[in-house]
Amino acid sequence: MTRITLTRGDITEQHVDAVVNAANSSLLGGGGVDGAIHRRGGPEILAECRRLRAGDYGKGLPTGQAVATTAGRLPARWVIHTVGPVYSVSRDRSGELADCYRSSLRVADELGARTVAFPAVSTGVYGWPMDDAARIALATVRATPTEVSEVRFVLFGEEAYRAFAAALAEAEGSAQG
Rank of each mutant, 00 (worst) to 15 (best):
M1K: 15
T2F: 13
T2M: 14
I4C: 02
L6D: 03
L6V: 02
L6A: 04
T7R: 15
T7Y: 01
R8F: 01
G9H: 08
I11Y: 06
T12M: 01
E13P: 05
V16K: 03
V16T: 08
A18K: 03
V20R: 01
V20N: 00
S25P: 02
S25L: 01
S26H: 09
L27F: 10
L28R: 05
L28I: 10
G29S: 08
G30Q: 03
G31A: 12
G32F: 03
G35Y: 12
A36L: 13
A36N: 10
G41Q: 07
G41D: 08
G42L: 11
P43V: 13
E44R: 14
E44V: 05
I45W: 06
L46Y: 01
R50D: 04
L52Y: 08
L52T: 06
G55T: 15
Y57K: 10
P62D: 11
G64I: 05
G64E: 10
Q65C: 15
Q65F: 13
V67R: 14
A68P: 15
A71K: 04
R73W: 06
L74C: 07
P75K: 07
A76W: 02
W78T: 03
H81W: 09
H81L: 04
H81A: 08
H81F: 09
T82C: 12
V83M: 04
Y87H: 15
V89T: 15
R91Y: 14
D92Q: 02
D92N: 08
S94C: 12
S94M: 05
C100T: 07
Y101M: 05
Y101R: 02
Y101G: 03
R102P: 04
S104K: 06
L105C: 08
L105D: 07
A108E: 05
E110K: 13
L111H: 14
A113D: 07
T115P: 11
T115I: 06
A117Q: 12
A117D: 04
A117Y: 04
F118C: 11
F118L: 00
V121Q: 03
V121R: 01
V121H: 05
T123R: 09
V125S: 15
V125Y: 04
G127H: 06
W128M: 01
W128H: 00
D132N: 09
A134P: 10
A134V: 03
A134C: 13
A134G: 14
R135F: 05
I136Q: 06
A137L: 12
T140K: 13
T140N: 09
A143D: 15
A143M: 08
T144K: 07
T146N: 04
S149Q: 13
E150T: 14
R152W: 04
R152Y: 06
F153E: 00
F156V: 03
G157M: 09
E159C: 02
E159A: 09
E159W: 00
A160M: 02
R162P: 00
A163T: 09
F164M: 00
F164R: 00
A165R: 08
A166R: 11
A167L: 03
A167Y: 07
A167G: 13
A169E: 13
E170F: 09
G173H: 12
G173P: 06
S174D: 12
A175M: 05
